[in-house]
């Protein structure tokens, strides 16, 4: 158990080594903050998600080895929590809130419109890789229902037209 070996950073395959190092830095810092203890797993996965945009398999292996958590356990935790994604996100991200207030306010209809208008289903990325559509349980912006987040920017009082237009702009076509 003492022999940790060299951190297998090299096993993470990304085109540029320097980019890679920068992305792993946050991950390493998080793990060090918790002295590489196993219970830092979720915090570390948050860091991976933040710097890589998703949980890349090689990074998961790296984290598992560093924190000495079984591989299957890492995968289990990564798939149990909805905040983590194993797929790379699209260029843009649209989150539609499906909290109760937003649902009552019509966010279900917005999702229907997106499916019909743009062919996007929640949890998926468009085939052109431009837009990922996510559904949030509650953004806590119930006062602004229905609410959504467009590339990190919370927007309230949405309607289908508005959302379709924004997505259309991202994908380079008008509605």
């Amino acid at each position: 158990m003492k022999d940790q070996g060299a951190p297998p950073e090299a096993s993470v395959q990304v085109s540029s080594k320097s980019v890679e190092d920068r992305r792993l830095r946050l991950v390493n810092r998080t793990m060090q903050l918790y002295r590489n203890e196993a219970h830092a797993l979720i915090e570390t996965l948050h860091a991976v998600q933040e710097s890589f945009g998703y949980l890349e398999e090689d990074v998961l292996k790296y984290v598992a080895r560093t924190l000495r958590v079984p591989l299957s356990r890492v995968y289990a935790v990564a798939t149990f929590y909805h905040s983590f994604s194993l797929k790379p996100p699209g260029e843009h991200t649209c989150v539609i809130c499906m909290g109760t207030a937003c649902y009552i306010g019509g966010s279900g209809a917005i999702l229907d419109a997106l499916r019909e208008g743009e062919g996007i289903v929640s949890g998926e990325t468009t085939s052109d890789g431009k837009v990922s559509l996510l559904v949030a349980r509650c953004l806590g912006s119930c006062g602004l229902a229905p609410a959504g987040v467009f590339d990190g920017e919370v927007t309230g009082k949405l309607d289908s037209e508005h959302v379709l237009e924004r997505i259309g702009r991202w994908r380079g076509h008008e509605h």
């Binding site: 909290g99 109760t100 207030a101 937003c102 349980r137 509650c138 806590g140 912006s141 119930c142 006062g143």
Partner: peptide, 11 residues
């Protein structure tokens, strides 16, 4: 971990 959809007191 205010999880109830439609609640934002704790936040």
């Amino acid at each position: 971990d205010e999880g109830d959809p439609g609640a934002f007191m704790d936040r």
